[in-house]
Design a protein around this nucleic acid. Structure first.
Lengths: 344, 344
DNA sequence: GTCAAATGAAAAAACGTTTTCTCAAAAAAA
DNA sequence: TTTTTTTGAGAAAACGTTTTTTCATTTGAC
């Protein structure tokens, strides 16, 4: 072999069941049955075939197998979340749940481009995926591609689904309630809510739950999903006359971080003077904030896991009830909310 | 159909080339040749077959095709970067480069678990991937799985490869030089370098390039990859006697952000008093810092694109020279480095 | 008008499995 | 013994393509 040219590895011939059969001195049908524990044959024969197969390193060709069985042991994950902030945990959960079942995952990032989405969907269907999971960065938006009449099952995770589909999402209202109640139980009285744009469904949902739980007359501050908005919101609150809040519930961790920074700049101590709770548990923001943020985790990995198992069930023809499944959020307690530590 | 049970979609029979042949009144071989523009036949026949195929929505089964052609039009992307901070741009590049060629990408997140890695690799090989791209979060570490004797080509991207392999990585030295020279050209004289742990190869590489370019007697400050280290490093520098730096070149954006925050707390203005340049162009940190960070972008998407095209070339048997390919970095100028704006 | 060449299209083989069908030999029942 | 049942294992079909081979017609040259 020339040394300056890379070995492509393509030359090595793969071992087929024919090789196993030949080496074991049986027919391919016997070999197949031996390896799959089906059919009738002597124990000795079965064991010998298995041993030979393992010795020569036989691994069945999934393409050939899939051609016959109509199952490719492959699913597609479609996402428009370029950052991966939401997709990555979901993906991790899907993959984790399915790897045990021998299922691999195609990842298709389609931005917000319908044409690209179409291309990816077609490529996946051509490759005979057993199902598709659609995921996004927003609960109240559809992916820019029509998945309603596909020949394979579709499950939606963290994105708006079609009417009669299975959709997994986080229970944002419950998450918000969790945060507010924690603050109340730790003795906080005046909780403000600084959050993202009102157009987001999850913003309204969290805000409503906040109002219900806090029973507060405080107006909700709607703005952007950015640190600077968190910063500005604090300026706004402190500019206004009247009593200041002793706790903040923020719409996401970035806003919370901006708010914490703004408070520090004003010499207000977190958590001594003001408790702060964020949303998302985006580690990279929440854990690096000083002090580290208490925040609501949407359990996206678990969401992905369930979506994975569900699409698998559908692919296997097991019955699944359609509808929206809300998964509970979890409060991750770090140092940004103090007061008397409430009971667990 | 019962209404409370979801349509699995599995029932719909897929359209095969047999259906096309029957509908067009030709044999399947003629149908195949018509659709692939091969073989000899009358123009009228060819057009008729194509029209019929498109009318009834025929799409060839990639499994069957792959069985024969030994190409699955599928590659695997292996990563141990759970956060996706490095993997996501690489993945985006790979996918973007390959989607035009009809190639889909399996994403396998293997954490740092050798057993999990092994499982994923075997699953991919069973599915007859045409090649594998290994990517990670660190240039000087191997993935915890042996890819050296696979029957398919392997390309490494942003991770240490095996001796005779193709590896793509960023040219960190060039990137660091870019940053330092920009600062020098904008009139800065005393540039400090705050960076990550010395064990990282890229830290040493960037630091060496910094020293060479800055010609500086300033010692490099090694620490962690965190904001708080950036913060602490500023405290350390300002605690020491002597002249203070008028520019900082930081090992990553998080350190830079911590430094910028620390400077602000001391009433030192960025960029008026001190210019700051980061590394990574991690938008979520760099763009949200106040002021937004000038930073070095490693062009990971381009890196992914090239890795994708290379693994494709290898899969098709085209010759590729082994070795490490360093891709140039790019300076992304935002507001954190001022002084007189240097010429482009 | 005969033969060779070109054309159009079908038949058959192949890819690597799994599954159904068949069949001979051995064991059990009559 | 003869007949039936059980056992073990091979042959063949199937999955949906592509590719090679074959073959009957038509066309062109002499």
């Amino acid at each position: 072999m020339r040394e300056d040219i890379l070995d492509t590895g393509g030359a090595k011939k793969r071992i087929t069941i024919h090789d196993v059969a030949a080496a074991a001195g049986v027919s391919i049908s016997t070999a197949s049955k031996a390896l799959n524990n089906t059919g009738r044959m002597g124990d000795e024969t079965r064991e010998r075939v298995k041993r030979v197969a393992s010795d020569i390193g036989f691994r069945p060709n999934a393409l050939a197998r899939g051609l016959l069985s109509k199952r490719s042991f492959t699913i597609g994950l479609l996402t428009n979340d370029t950052y991966g902030r939401f997709t990555l945990p979901v993906m991790a959960g899907v993959s984790e749940a399915l790897v045990d079942h021998g299922v691999s995952v195609f990842l298709c990032a389609i931005e917000d481009d319908p044409a690209l989405g179409q291309i990816h969907v077609e490529a996946m269907l051509d490759k005979q995926v057993d199902g598709i999971i659609a995921t996004g960065k927003r609960l109240d938006r559809r992916l820019p591609v029509d998945l309603s009449n596909l020949p394979v099952p579709v499950v939606y995770a963290f994105t708006e689904g079609t009417p009669n589909s299975v959709t997994f999402r986080s229970d944002d209202a419950q998450g918000a309630t969790l945060a507010v109640e924690w603050l109340l139980r730790s003795g906080r009285q005046r909780i403000a809510h600084i959050t993202g744009p009102k157009e987001f469904f999850s913003v309204r949902e969290r805000a409503d739950a906040y109002s219900a739980a806090a029973g507060s007359a405080e107006p909700v501050l709607y703005g952007l999903w950015s640190e600077s908005w968190g910063h500005d919101a604090i300026a706004e609150i402190w500019r206004r006359p009247g009593e200041k809040p002793d706790a903040l519930f923020c719409g996401n961790d970035q806003i919370a971080r901006g708010a914490v920074d703004a408070l520090r700049e004003r010499g207000i101590k977190v958590p001594e003077d003001v408790s702060v709770i964020g949303f998302d548990n985006w580690e990279i923001v929440a854990a690096q904030t000083r002090p580290p943020l208490t925040t609501v985790d949407m359990e996206l990995k678990e969401l992905g896991r369930q979506a994975g198992l569900t699409v698998l069930a559908l692919a296997e023809g097991r019955p699944v009830e359609p509808g929206v499944r809300k998964l509970p959020c979890r409060l991750v307690v770090r140092q940004s909310c103090g007061g008397s530590t409430p009971r667990e």
